[in-house]
Design a protein around this nucleic acid. Structure first.
Lengths: 209, 209
DNA sequence: GTCTATACATCGATAGAC
DNA sequence: GTCTATCGATGTATAGAC
């Protein structure tokens, strides 16, 4: 795939233009709101006429789809950039939650597109959704490492994380009022999933100090 | 206020029309998406011409504001209709969470308007926000009854509830995959807020052996 | 209060020339 | 690929009759 671009200067230029379009689309969405994104404003930003944008995507929903994939790529990159973590599974899980909430709080409209479905008619394509699945798998593995494998446990955890992220974004954008609760939230979750009565699920001792 | 309407048939008719407008606006929003609501379609639904709608609200954002207030009234009515609960504080809290998540899952766009801020330019007016404050106060009182009064506790709880509601709405609309976790979530929360080792609120240390 | 009529700006999208 | 020109639909708003 890479060789195609590097070997073909026209494809490389097109790729660069496409990246510029995505970047400016995010910027406009942050300024005007995700739903209020205007293709004419976007065209102005990238030195094109509005109809010429259709050489890069088939419709506005298609653009949202590309942004959805891009946002998920950013999320995976953000997680990778803030690693590696301690090997200790519960610490790794705490770190993940912290990072995800921070990621969400850094860009409200990105969080809207990735985790809230508010654009009428928008449904991620299978290809774009694959990136979201990658993130889900990453979280699932880190949950399994602390012994949370049942669907109910995973669902409870996902609610906890999205709740923290949503409250952070909605009520304290740019701050850390909910982000700083990530560690406590995971502690609470772990205690629920692995009760400290050390019976079947391995020897786990919990004490308060 | 009531006497005004009952005493004046014209005011009563206007009130009825206004209710009809709100009702059809919700229905259209559910069909087309909240942001895609069209005033021309709405006018057709209520047997008016589009400009005549401006006799009932000053702008489209004004209509959203009225829907915001209406949705919050519905929430308070929904809570009232599903009471009274057991006096036991923790059970009352569980019931509240259950009801709120169920309420959200019953209407996705209502949940969007009330708890997610996705309409560009929309900000609830002070009058409409008063209803939201009523709900917040109700939840705060029920939290206080179980001993959760610190802001961090309230924030953690709000994240938990909105997280359950959001996951329910986004990933299992109409179902109960997350709604049924409400009781467990509250139990988990209560254990965190009121540790049964009644000493300090120190960090919980878990170690494997 | 509701209507007709109209205006204006903006939007996504398409046709066809180059 | 990019352009010009244009389309239909939209939201907003106003004037003026009844």
């Amino acid at each position: 795939m890479r060789s195609k671009i590097e070997g073909d200067p026209r494809a490389a230029r097109r790729e660069a233009k496409w990246s510029k379009i995505l970047e400016e689309a995010w910027d406009l969405a942050r300024r005007d709101g995700l739903a209020a994104l205007s293709l004419r404003d976007l065209a102005d930003r990238v030195d094109l006429r509005q109809p010429s944008l259709y050489a890069y995507f088939d419709s506005k929903l298609d653009l949202y789809d590309a942004m959805f994939a891009d946002g998920n790529r950013q999320l995976l990159a953000f997680i990778a950039a803030h690693g590696p973590y301690a090997d200790e599974p519960s610490e790794a899980l705490k770190a993940l939650v912290q990072v995800v909430v921070q990621f969400s709080s850094e860009d409200v409209v990105r969080h809207q597109l990735l985790f809230q479905r508010t654009i009428p008619g928008f449904e991620p394509s299978a290809a774009s959704y694959a990136f979201a699945r990658d993130f889900y798998e990453l979280a699932r593995r880190r949950l399994a490492a602390v012994g949370a494998t049942e669907q109910n446990d995973i669902d409870l955890f996902s609610a906890l994380v999205t709740g923290l992220a949503h409250q952070q974004v909605a009520n304290d954008p740019g701050g850390d009022r909910w982000a700083r609760l990530a560690g406590r939230a995971v502690t609470m979750f772990l205690y629920e999933v692995e009760p400290h009565t050390p019976t079947t699920k391995g020897e786990l001792r919990c004490t308060r100090h």
